[in-house]
Structure formats: structure tokens, C-alpha cells
């Protein structure tokens, strides 16, 4: 019995790893296309045309092959063990977070639980814990490179990540209090019964999504790797697949952040017409599709923002976190706690 559970979990892990890596490859193509349209260009449209594949759909393969086949330069002056360890930390912390992300409906009556580790009571807290480790990859890469630009990039990044973790954590607490659980499945089930979280916690959604931008080092918060000032920031000295791993880790973080955003504020798999009682395999697949579509829209939104807004200045970035977002998140938290207590006391 146990062995089958174990094999099932291993298969789930393999599927999740494979699907997310493949998605990342195509996200890079999507990003390049969106960048091209935003800048009034055409973007990649050739790769695969000779063998009859339209829309440059083979471009990700070419990009991946390029990453793997380029020369892997390790400069002489780096601290070698940490220099090699840093990209692995970046990719590992991004992958481990997927363990508790629900990809679809999860429950005792479901045929397949679309989650690697169901029944993890702390759910969202685990995602936060693993996400807080991601800073090691960046700071170690910056320090081990033994290069001023990389080091400044690493320092900026660690300050940024630590600062934005606070509003990120505070803004999810509102939804956690309303739904009464840290488990993402229960939060989705609550939204299925009462309506999406964004209608109850609009301010928390704005704060969470903004912090998620900063946590994933995306524009307009990509100070750690701003090209004009820092060459490439913390990954200046990295080449070939080691650079590719940082890239992969960044995109995996975006996928995790979008899954959590959708699960917290957009009802996860919930749509008008779908509810917890529908359990068959077809309903499950439909819910997975709805969830994936919502996550895809969120990712597209993040890419759209990247090519729309200019980069912040560093002091503006820190002011935004400490002087506006943290106070707003605290006000939101206290107000939500008050309302929840009043509702529980007088209306139930």
C-alpha cells in the first residue's frame, strides 16, 4: 500500500518538474514575443519554419541547446565551491515550493489529488519559508564572483528580498484570517462558497502582487541586475548553463507566485458553475484547465508590466517597501482582524 503511495508521489513529482520546465521554455518565447510587440518589432518567427512548425515554436529548443552547448567559463578569481553552489540553490528553492501548490482540485473524494503533498496544514507558510531561502542563491553568487558589480547586485538583492518579504507575508494574512486556514485548498474552497478573495481583500491583492514582482526580481523591481549600472548584477560572471539555471529559477518563481496569487485572490479553480461537489475526472480536468488559464493570464500580466513601466531608483524602491507598503499592509491586517472578530461575534 505504502509503496504505491510512494510511487504515485514520485510520478507526480516527475510530472510537475517536467511540465514546469517545459512551461518555462515556452514562457521565454512568450516573453520575447511580448517584448517585440511592445517595441513594435516582430520578434522570433523563423525557428522551425523549415520543418513546417509555425510561430517559431522550436525557438525554446534552440535557446536551450545554446545554453547547454556554450562554453562554461569559470573565472580564476572566484570562490569556486560557492560559485558553483549558488545557481543550484537558486533552482532548488524555486522547485521545492511546488510541493504544496495545488494544481487543481484536492480532496478526500477526488480520484487524483492535483498536489504533490496534500494535507500540509501550513501550506502557504511553507511557500513563504522556501521562498525566503531563495536569497541565498543571489547573495552567494554576488559574493563568490569576487567582482564589484556582482557584489553590489547581490547586496541590493538581499536587501530588496528581505524588505519585500514583510508586506508579502502581511498581505496574505488577511485572506488566511477570513478563510480560517493556511492550507491553500481550504482557502480555495472558502472562495468557492463565498466569492473570490479579491472582492474581500482588494488592498491586500495589490500589495501582494507588487511584493511578488519584487520577490521575483522582475521589472520595475529588477535593481539587482540593472544593466546600465551593474553590467548583469549578481550573475555578471556566470555563463552557459549556470546562467541558464538562474534564469530558470527566476521563471519558476514567477510561476509559483502566480499560482499562489490565483489561489489566494482569484478562487483557484473556481468559476461560476464549478463547485466543490463536482468530483469526476472530467470535472477535475476542467478545473485544472481553469486554474492553468488563470495562472497563464497572471503571467502574461507580469510580462506586460515588464515592458510598460521603467525601473525604480534604489532609494525609491526601499521607501516604497518600508514607508508605504508595510504600513498599508498593517492597516489592512488590523482592519481585517477587527471585521472578522465582529462578524464572528454578531452574525454567527
Amino acid at each position: 500500500m505504502t509503496i504505491w503511495v510512494l510511487i504515485g508521489i514520485l510520478i507526480k513529482i516527475l510530472i510537475v518538474v517536467g511540465v514546469t520546465q517545459g512551461t518555462v521554455a515556452y514562457l521565454i518565447l512568450v516573453e520575447r514575443k511580448i517584448a517585440a510587440y511592445a517595441q513594435d518589432r516582430i520578434g522570433p518567427n523563423r525557428c522551425g519554419r523549415e520543418v513546417g512548425v509555425p510561430f517559431a515554436l522550436l525557438q525554446p529548443l534552440a535557446d536551450g541547446a545554446k545554453m547547454l552547448l556554450k562554453e562554461d567559463v569559470v573565472p580564476k578569481y572566484v570562490t569556486k565551491p560557492l560559485y558553483i553552489l549558488a545557481p543550484w540553490i537558486a533552482i532548488a528553492t524555486a522547485m521545492v515550493g511546488f510541493a504544496v501548490v495545488p494544481f487543481g482540485p484536492v480532496g478526500p473524494n477526488e480520484l487524483i489529488n492535483f498536489q504533490i503533498a496534500p494535507n500540509v496544514d501550513i501550506g502557504i507558510l511553507y511557500v513563504m519559508a522556501v521562498g525566503s531561502l531563495a536569497v541565498y542563491g543571489v547573495i552567494l553568487a554576488g559574493w563568490a564572483s569576487n567582482n564589484k558589480y556582482a557584489f553590489i547586485g547581490g547586496l541590493r538583492s538581499s536587501a530588496q528580498l528581505i524588505s519585500y518579504e514583510i508586506p508579502l507575508g502581511l498581505s496574505i494574512l488577511g485572506m488566511v484570517m477570513i478563510a480560517g486556514s493556511l492550507d491553500l485548498n481550504r482557502i480555495i474552497a472558502w472562495q468557492d462558497a463565498h466569492g473570490w478573495g479579491i472582492f474581500y481583500q482588494p488592498l491586500a491583492f495589490v500589495l501582494f502582487f507588487t511584493s511578488a514582482f519584487a520577490e521575483t526580481n522582475r521589472l520595475p523591481f529588477d535593481l539587482p541586475e540593472s544593466e546600465q549600472e551593474l553590467v548583469g548584477g549578481f550573475h555578471t560572471e556566470y555563463s552557459a548553463m549556470k546562467f541558464g539555471m538562474f534564469f530558470l529559477g527566476e521563471y519558476l518563481h514567477i510561476i509559483t507566485a502566480c499560482f499562489v496569487t490565483v489561489a489566494l485572490f482569484f478562487g483557484g479553480w473556481d468559476m461560476p458553475g464549478l463547485n466543490v461537489e463536482q468530483t469526476g475526472i472530467l470535472w477535475s480536468l476542467l478545473k485544472v484547465g481553469v486554474f492553468a488559464a488563470k495562472v497563464g493570464l497572471a503571467i502574461l500580466f507580469i510580462m506586460w508590466i515588464r515592458w510598460t513601466l521603467p525601473r525604480f531608483r534604489y532609494d525609491q524602491l526601499m521607501d516604497l517597501a518600508w514607508k508605504s507598503m508595510i504600513p498599508l499592509a498593517l492597516i489592512n491586517l488590523v482592519a481585517t482582524a477587527g471585521v472578522v472578530q465582529l462578524v464572528r461575534t454578531y452574525w454567527s
Binding site: L125, Y126, A129, L133, I139, F151, S158, I162
Partner: peptide
């Protein structure tokens, strides 16, 4: 579980990173 996540967030995610910061500088 809560203790595990809390330990990682507080110690590994915040305090040791601050140590690293200071040591490197």
C-alpha cells in the same frame, strides 16, 4: 510543521542572511 516553517523563515531566511550581509561587508 509550523515550528519548522517558522524556524526557516526567522533563522535561515532572515537572521543568517543578515549575518552574511555583515560578514561580507
Amino acid at each position: 510543521q509550523f515550528l519548522a516553517a517558522g524556524t526557516i523563515i526567522v533563522y535561515a531566511g532572515a537572521i543568517i542572511v543578515t549575518f552574511l550581509f555583515v560578514i561580507m561587508l
